Amino acid sequence: MTTAEKPSTQLDEVPSLAIEVYDGMHHSPGCEGELLCRLEGSAAPLDALPFTLLEEVNKMLELCEGRYSAPESAEGRFTAFVFRGLSAKPVMRILVTATQGEANAQLALEAAEGHALPEVVVGTEDDVVVILRKATERRQS
């Protein structure tokens, strides 16, 4: 007797992501900064090429943005760490400074040099999830 296997979908094959957001600028997770929020999940396009890590982070933030409330940064500066699967080591770090209606973000991938993301316009009502989503959006040139 054979057993039928459940057909695999691309989403089943994507290890879960966790995004931890801390108030202030930090170089490692579990820092002394206040943990503002933690998001967990995964995102994968149906019948298309897999998302890049940055695209998947952006999609998760987009999905959470309208459904869950998130705090604002008391300092106007915060750090997001992205983890893949059960790893304790982040695969991405995003440092964000939001002042006077603009946000600047610095992206650092595991074992790679950091680089600046394009500046984005933010509103006074934007929380850390909205600002991160705006900062990680792919822009057309």
Rank of each mutant, 00 (worst) to 15 (best):
G85Y: 03
S141K: 08
A112P: 00
V82L: 04
H26C: 01
Q100S: 15
A88F: 01
A48H: 05
S69P: 01
A105H: 13
N58C: 09
Q106Y: 09
L11S: 13
L107V: 14
T2A: 12
T2N: 14
T97C: 02
G24N: 02
G66H: 07
F83R: 04
T79H: 03
L36A: 13
P71H: 08
A103H: 07
C31G: 15
P15N: 01
K59C: 10
L39G: 02
L35W: 10
L54D: 11
E102Y: 14
A103K: 04
I19E: 07
A43Y: 04
P71E: 00
A44K: 14
N104Q: 03
L49A: 15
K6F: 09
E110Q: 10
A48V: 07
R67W: 02
V96P: 08
A18L: 03
E56P: 05
E32L: 12
V91E: 10
D12W: 07
H26G: 06
G114Q: 12
T79Y: 02
R138I: 13
F81I: 08
P50V: 03
L35A: 09
L46M: 09
L49K: 08
P50M: 06
E62K: 09
N58W: 12
A80M: 11
L49F: 07
K89E: 13
E110H: 13
G30W: 10
Q10C: 01
A43G: 02
N104C: 09
G85V: 14
A44L: 01
A108K: 10
E20I: 10
V122E: 08
F81K: 00
Q10M: 11
K59N: 04
E102W: 06
A111S: 15
E13V: 10
A74M: 07
L49N: 08
G66D: 10
E20C: 11
I19R: 05
L46R: 04
M1I: 06
Y68K: 10
F51R: 04
S73M: 05
L107H: 11
R93A: 14
A44N: 01
R133H: 15
V121C: 02
N58Q: 13
D127S: 00
A4R: 11
L132F: 09
E137D: 06
E62A: 09
L61V: 13
A98V: 15
P50I: 14
R138A: 06
A4V: 11
V91D: 06
A112Y: 09
F51A: 04
